[in-house]
Structure formats: structure tokens, C-alpha cells
Simulated scan of single mutants.
Amino acid sequence: MAALSLALTALLAGAPGAGADEPADAAARGPRLYVPDPNPDALRQVVDLVKAGQYRDAAGVAAMVATPQAVWFGDQTPAQVEKLTRDVVKDADRSDATPVFALYNIPGRDCSNYSAGGAANTAEYRAWIDAVARGIGSRDAMVVLEPDALALLPADCGQDDAEGTRTAARYVEVNYAVDTLEPLRGTRVYLDTGHPGWHAVSSIVPRLIKGGVGRASGFYTNASNYQTDDANSWYGKLISSCIAYVEGGGDAADCPSQSVPRAEAQAWLDAHVHVPPSRMAHFVTDSSRNGQGPWTPPAGKYTDPQDWCNPPDRGLGARPTLRTGDPLQDARLWIKTPGESDGLCLRGTEGPEDPERGYLDPKAGDWFPQQALELVRYANPPVL
């Protein structure tokens, strides 16, 4: 067992994870992103791969978990999340790194689907956000606030009443989180847009504005999805430009969406948006699993392909960085924890197996060894 522990330590030490896309010189690298403790089942997989003599796969999974990625909180009590958040920011501070928190506790989370849960009501959510704020304190942090909270409102999934009570509450909750966390000395808060294959720019921008994006650092796109870096960056630019246009008195319905030819959309931006990037909403993107782009399901095979749910043969994307070269893009992150399942994917069948894989997927958030290996083997750029 000692030999296996030594092998695992060597694999992790040699893994080209943290800062893989940053300059090699530490002085030139500037701010770094935080590497959280890995899922224990990921380490067990590495050990099992070493035992089986699959050293390259073991090194790949080790490299994956040694790469900066978000820390997810969502089902803890206020006391628990305050302590855990404080522990993370203190640990990150010791290594001069910035942690990324994915906060996932909004009431009615995920429309009560695979990742159902969240706070019971607005008062409970406020208490939870207050606890997160106390945990962060004055230390640096980036907050990816409530994936799907704005892209998937209660009204979008039939969970609201005729008066729109729950959707109205959703906006109150998101605004409260922005107004509580963004004023912290070192915290930057980003709001949900879904991804470029979902909402049109003219659809998501009013939601962002109503959610308080004007008082946040900006927004994020592609959390837990597979859209390419190019698609995400363009989507982010269009959204940021549309927000600026609306804040200047324009109508979001006039903004070009991602489906418009780029030359045409750029001409519209040149004619209508004259705000410097420093005064526009910034954005971050998720490249954790987009190395092979989105999955195209077999035509006509499934009534509900669930192309977002554990699609086969995807790969890790470009490594996280705070140096994007884009004045509007603050970071490229690994928001979704690569290697953790999206849920029990049935793709419109009776199941219980995932028909695309031929076996039962782990429940949402559990470690998925087969997918972890796919992400490593199909990584673009390679992890080794």
C-alpha cells in the first residue's frame, strides 16, 4: 500500500494541472486559480489504475484532479457552509490563489430534476448566502452564482403559479446574493446565462438585467455544458454588448443573437455599442468538458436525447486561466467538476440504463470512472 501511495503522490506531483496554460515563470504568471481537494473516488480510481498497470490513464486522471476547478456548495446548513467556505479561502490565501465557488442552493433548483434540492424558501436562502459571505470575508474569491437560476426559471418548467410568484422570488433571491456578495472586498460575482446553444441573446439579457448583473462583476456561460471556447467567447461578447446597449436606452430585442452571421452582428455592434470594455459587464466561461465540443445525438434515435447529460466521448477542454487576452473575459474556468456524473440519463427511454452507454449512470454529482477516462483520453489540448 505504501508503494501505491508513493506512486499516487508522484503522479499528482508530476501532473501538468494548475497553471498549465499560464507562463512557466511564477513571477510572470500573476494571480493563480485554486486547486481544491479532489473527489475521494477520483483518487481511488487513480490507485486502481496504478494497480492495473494503466499508468498513463492514472497520470491523466491525476492531472485532471490537480487542475484548478470550482468548489461547489449547495446542500450544507448555514453553519456548515460558513465553515467550509472559510476553510477554502484560508487555504487558497496560503498558496496565493483565487478560489472559485459555484453556489447551488436556490429554491426550486434544477426544476426539481436530477440536481433537485436547494433552500426551502427565500428566507432560508438569504440566511445561507449570509453565511457564505461571512465565510469569504475580505479574502479573494470568484462566485459562479446558481447555475440555471436565470436560464431555467420556475416559469420555464411549469413550477410557477398564475401570478408568477416563484419566478418573482427567484429574482429577489439572485439580487440578494449579488448585493450581499459583490460588495465584499475581494469577491467577484457572475450570473447565469446557460450556454450558446440555449437562450438567444435577446432572451437572456433581460433576465440578467433583472437579476442584477449591473451590480455584479458580470456573467458566465457554458457551466456544465460542452460548447466550444469560440462559441462561448462570441456569445459572451454579444451578451455584454447587448447589456451595454440596453443600459444606454436600447431594446434587447434589437440585439443580434449568436445565430446571426458574425460579420453582420459585428457591424451592428460597431454601429450601436460604443462603451469601453472597462465599463461593460465582463464574463467567464466553463471549458471543463468542451474539448470535443457538443455531442450530436444519432438522428431520430431518441425522443429526448439529453445531449447535456453524460454525452459519450467528450474531452477536457483548455486549462483554466485568468489571462484570456480578451478585455471582456475575466477567466476561462473549470466550473463543472470533470469526472462527476450529470445524472441518470434515460434519453426518453424507460431505462434504467443509459441507452447510449448500455449501463446505469451514477447519480448527479457522483464520480463516474468511465466518463473520467473519456475526458482524459479525448482531452483537447491533451493533459499529458
Rank of each mutant, 00 (worst) to 15 (best):
S5A: 15
P16F: 03
A20C: 10
A20H: 07
G30C: 10
V35A: 02
D37T: 08
R44Q: 13
V46Q: 01
Y55N: 12
R56D: 15
A58W: 09
V65I: 15
T67A: 08
P68Y: 02
Q69I: 00
A70E: 11
D75T: 10
T77G: 06
K83P: 00
L84Q: 14
D87F: 06
A92V: 04
D96E: 09
T98W: 01
P99N: 01
F101E: 04
A102G: 12
R109F: 03
D110F: 08
C111Q: 08
S112M: 13
N113Q: 14
S115K: 10
A120S: 15
A123G: 08
D130Y: 03
V132N: 08
A133N: 12
D140Y: 01
E146A: 10
E146F: 11
P147C: 03
D148H: 12
D148A: 13
A151E: 10
L153K: 02
L153S: 06
Q159W: 02
T165N: 09
Y171E: 06
E173H: 01
P183W: 02
R188M: 09
R188D: 07
H195D: 13
P196M: 13
W198K: 14
S202V: 05
S203F: 01
G211D: 11
G211L: 07
V213T: 11
F219Y: 11
F219K: 07
T221Y: 09
N222I: 09
S224F: 13
N225F: 08
N225C: 08
D230C: 00
G236T: 09
I243D: 10
Y245H: 12
G248H: 09
D251M: 00
D251W: 01
R262I: 01
E264S: 14
A265N: 08
A267H: 02
A271D: 12
V273W: 10
H274M: 00
S287V: 03
S288M: 02
N290F: 04
Q292I: 01
K301F: 00
D304G: 00
P305A: 10
C309S: 06
C309G: 06
P311M: 03
P312G: 13
R319F: 15
L322R: 00
T324A: 03
G325L: 09
L333T: 05
I335T: 02
G339L: 07
R347W: 04
P352L: 04
L360Q: 14
D361N: 12
A364Y: 08
G365C: 07
L373Q: 11
L375W: 13
V376Q: 10
Y378P: 00
V383R: 11
